[in-house]
Structures are given as C-alpha cells and as structure tokens.
Design a protein around this nucleic acid. Structure first.
Lengths: 281, 281
DNA sequence: GTCAATATGAAATATTAATTCCAATCTACA
DNA sequence: TGTAGATTGGAATTAATATTTCATATTGAC
C-alpha cells in the first residue's frame, strides 16, 4: 500500500481536491459528498452513507482504497479524529509538550507545559460554564450574611484567594481552616442565612466532604466547585460547577478554578452593590 | 418501554444525576465515566468503552436499558448528536457570547473578563520568560536543604500551592505563615544552605519585604517573583522574575504566577531526581 | 463498431460488534 | 446465619456492518 496515506483531515481534503479531476463518476460523487458532509462520514455506517450519497457501499470502499486506506473503516477514523480535535485543539499541543518534557526537553518544556495546561483549562471552562448556574450561585451567595469557604490541600490556594478577595470587597467571610482543630465548632455557627463555597477535587479530601455534609445538614446553602457531577460534593450542593482542569507532570492546573472563583467573588460584590442601590433608591 | 427516554444530552445528563444515588455500583461507575468522557462514548464501541470504564460490556448495555433506551446503540446516538450540534453551532454560540458580554450582558461578562485576563497573562509570561533565569532559579532551589516560601495577601495562595506541591514531591519546605507571630523566629533557622522563594506584588506587603531583607542578610539565596525590576524584592534576590499580570475589575490575575510557580516546583523535583541519579550512578 | 480496460451494481461472505443468557457473587432482610 | 432478590462477569448468540466477489455495464482507443 502507498505510504502517503492521509492521516489528518486537511491532508485528506487536499488529496481529494487534487485528484478530483481524474476520479471516475461514482467515486467523484462520494468524494464530493464526503467533503460536504464530513459529520455524516464520521458517524454513519458504510450502508447509510452510501445510501445518502446515492452510491453502493462497495463504491465507498473503493473510494477509500483509492486514497490508500485499506478500507472504509480506516478512512472513517480520519473523519472521527477531526471531530475530536476540533473540541480540544490544545490537547495535541499539550501531548507534544508532555512528550518533549519526558524525553528531557529541558526545563523550559516544563514551564511551557504548565502554561499550555492552564490555557486548555481556561478554554474548557469558558465553553462549558452554564450561565444560569452562575447566576444562581451569585444570587445565593449575595444573600448570605457570612460566606464560609471550605477547601483543603490542592484546592486550598483557591479558598485562600477567595477569602482574600471577599475581604477586599468587604464581604463578611470565614475561611474554614483552623490549626487548632476547631473546624467543627466554626461550622457550627453557620445558619441557613449564611452560605458556603466548597471546593474539592478527586481524590476528595475526606475532611472537606465531612464538613460539607455537616454544614449542609444545618440547612446552609452550598455552592460547590468540583471535577465531576459524581463528586460527593455535588449531592450536598444547591448549585455546583464542574471544572475540568488539564494536568501536566502529575499536577493539575488550577487556573480555571481560580478564574471561576474570582468571577464568583466579584459578581457577588456587584450584585450586592446593585441590590443595595435598589433598596436605598 | 418508558416514553420518557432522554433524547438530548442535557436531559440525559439530568436523568443520570437524578438517579445517581440509587444506581448499583458498576452501573454508577459507567454512568460517571459516561458523563466525564462523553466523547469516548460517542466514538467507541461497547467493548472499548467498557474496558476504559473498567466494566463488562453487558453492564454498559444494562446502563442504557435502565435509562429507557433499548440498547447501547440508541444511547450512543445521544452522545453523537451532542458532538454534531456542538460543532455546528460552536462558532455561532461564541459570537453570541461575545456580543452579549460587550453590551453588558450581566455577570457572564465578569467571568469572561477573568478568563481573558488569565489568558493574556499566560501569553505574556510565555513570551517574556527568560530561560537562563529559569535554569538558574531551578539550580539554586534544587541545591537547597529546605525551601522557605514567603508571601502574603494576594500572593499567599501561590505560596500555599508551592508548599503543597513541594510536599507532594517530598521536598523539604517551610511556608512562612505563623498565626502565633513567630515568623521572625522561623526565618532565623534558615542558613545559606537553604533557599527562599519570595513572592510579592505592588503594593508590596511590608512584612514580606522585611522578612525577605532579614533572611537575605543571613546569606540565604533568594528567588523572587514580583512585578517590576524596581520591586524592593529584586534587590535582595539572586534571581528574580518579573511577571506582568493583567487585571479585571480591580483584581489582578495570578494565573501566570501560578504557572511559573508550578513549573519551578516541578523542575526542581526533576533536577533533584537527575542529580540523585547521577550521584548514585 | 469491436475489443480491452475500467467502472459499477448487487448479492454473498467474512468480520466485527451488540446483545442475551446463565452461573456466580454479592446484598439486604428475616 | 440463611435465603430471596439483585447485581455482576463472562461466554454464547445474534445482529449489524464491512468487505469481497462476480456478473454486467460503460468508456475509450483503434
């Protein structure tokens, strides 16, 4: 078989356009169909595609073989790959950087890797954040007398930043972190008029889960930031955000979480100002 | 069969989350996998998906049937439809989003603002980071017996993340933050065989400056992360990094600083492994 | 117009993948 | 602790899908 088999969609497309003049009638027909309806090729069966394009399944296979593939299935792979990649254009770059860092591409590769991981995560959250959930969370937090912030380990930096920013905005808050082991008592003061921001990622710190459960049982509304809808935090939360962070070198980014946390904080500040103005006006 | 079979991904997702508590173990496992890796469901075969999720193919089919589908194939359709729709409407949606954000479309704009600030900062640092400085900092930190981490206020989250990551990598470190006001004493233990990572941005926290000065006078080498060459930190440091963070709504991003901090930490871990290997080999 | 080469259609076959079935294992409850 | 019911694993079965084959049609050269 020819070694120059197109591996990515763009090459394939170019190859097809290049040869289009010399293709037999039916083959040309399926070629045109393929470029016009790439999604159908990605998901359809040989029979269904052939029917839509008005040719026989065997023609479809001959088309694939003319291009150097060994059958329809391998041609289809290229069309599927295209769909996957479109969703995550950074993933490829990130994978390349990982490889580079592993084969000793120097320390610069490590830095580039973390930058790429952060960019990927930001792109993802930007696409996936649900506006309605965000509004809901802001409303809920803006009403709270005191906002409790709950996070350990990897998520703790986010919590401490939230606490810092809330303080700057003069919003009463309580970071639940007691060196003296008084977390339970601290949580005990929370009432349904307060609210909680809880942050935890797999592997979920047991203490965070336990504290969240306990505070939820007191009727305090919870906004959770976590990494899966199946996170134990999600079940206690009034609103939760699912944040998928890319990782590099075994350390996951926290950029997306940070951006979300900052946005929540500042939006709560805004909301309070709006509400205050309305009340006074 | 039940008439309420989810036809679109969002409904499906809601249904799964709704029932999640009552699902048997393996079914729950595949359910979590499905929501976390929707693309894999769209493209894979029953066997390949089952293998990735760590269950039997039959479990996958039972999962589909519990949801009201008559088999895996019809469940898969929903996941495929989602990809098609997302792809076709992605550009449109993005454009709409931008327009909305520009005309002051509520709180979503705040979120987008923070994402944009983070992206900008990452782009900036990626362009401006000096490889030689980075290497120098890594070498310096890799030699240290204990790494002291020094930061307050806005920079504190970065410091706490560094401390977390160093701990994970089994690198001895000391986060200088004492509720008991014993920072000076803590710093007193540092020797020239140790090293410091100091982080501070304008307006520089006086305590950070003071502590950095004091520890520098003891002959402990310092790596500084700051925002200007005129920063008071720079004069004490053996190596310093100038990080320009974009801001939004009066809050500066810390994404670039985070990425740099992570890269430093992991690179130090790498360097130590390399050196250790060389010594032993 | 005839022949050879090429292209096409349709059905047969081979391959792969989905589904079902049953025995084994858990779980909840008496 | 025993037992019914639910759940699970793994092989057997069935369905689907891709590919091959072969007869027929079409094209182009002489």
């Amino acid at each position: 078989m020819d070694e120059r088999v197109p591996r990515d969609f763009e090459t394939l497309r170019a190859t097809i356009l290049d040869r289009r003049a010399s293709l037999p009638k039916r083959i040309a027909q399926i070629a045109a169909y393929a470029l016009d309806n790439p999604d159908d090729i990605a998901f359809g069966t040989a029979a269904s595609i052939a029917a839509s394009a008005g040719v026989q399944p065997s023609t479809l296979i001959r088309f694939a073989q003319q291009l150097g593939f060994d059958g329809f299935t391998s041609l289809q792979q290229v069309f599927r790959e295209r769909l996957r990649e479109r969703n995550s254009s950074y993933d490829e770059r990130l994978a390349a950087l990982r490889a580079k860092a592993e084969e000793g591409g120097g320390h610069r590769a490590i830095f580039d890797g973390f930058v790429a991981a952060a960019s990927t995560s930001l792109g993802d959250i930007s696409r996936s954040l649900n506006d309605a959930h965000f509004e809901e969370a802001v409303t809920l937090l803006a009403k709270a007398e005191t906002i409790y912030v709950l996070a350990k380990r990897r998520s703790y930096p986010v919590a401490s930043y939230i606490a810092y920013a809330l303080g700057k905005l003069k919003i009463r808050n309580q970071l639940v972190e007691s060196a003296a082991g008084l977390n339970a008592e601290m949580i005990g003061f929370a009432t349904p008029r307060d609210a909680v921001i809880a942050i935890s990622f797999s592997p979920y710190a047991p203490a965070t889960i336990e504290e969240t459960r306990s505070i939820a049982e007191q009727g305090v509304p919870i906004v959770a930031i976590t990494d899966s809808s199946f996170s134990p935090l999600a079940q206690f939360a009034k609103v939760w955000f699912e944040v998928a962070e890319a990782d590099f070198g075994g350390f996951r980014s926290i950029s997306a979480t940070m951006a979300l946390a900052m946005a929540l904080t500042v939006a709560v500040g805004e909301k309070r100002r709006e509400t205050g103005r309305r009340r006074r006006g």
